[in-house]
Amino acid sequence: MAQVLKVNLPFDLRTSYDNDLFYKTAHDEHKFILPHCKSCGQYFWPGAFICQHCGSNDVEWKEASGHGKIYSHVEGRFPFHKAIKEHLPIAICSVTLDEGPRVFGRLVNYGEIEKVPYDAPVHVVWLQDDEKGCTIMGFELD
């Protein structure tokens, strides 16, 4: 099971009815699930009423690895909004999951941003905010 880090997030988490189960499952069970199409067999992200690949509405949530490769990363150092000032720097990454979709998360335990390797294997780490009652995706180099 993925590691859980206790954090303070800059904003409450806003989710949609369509993607809510991902975050609820992450928060309650620390499990990584993805939307999966039973018709064409492909995964997608975020959760939606139909499969983005084939358009079928025969979709389900399926437990996934939480592993992938880092596609890109940045390190925010400037408070574009006053609410994030105390949280800086915030590193953000995109990750191409082993299951296919490219997802978005906070990059954690990375050292110097300039030296983080592209395409390096990463795994999910849950970032849990107890006060706000929500959990988001973080990624850490394997």
């Binding site: 997030l9 800059p10 904003f11 409450d12 925010g76 574009f80 949280h87 953000i92 988001i136």
Partner: peptide
């Protein structure tokens, strides 16, 4: 209104950050 959207909690609130990723 706050929170901005799903990415707000992650601290991604600017076009600047998205273009920087690209």
């Amino acid at each position: 209104s706050k929170p901005y959207d799903e990415y707000g909690a992650y601290g991604n609130i600017s076009a600047f950050t998205n273009y920087a990723m690209f």
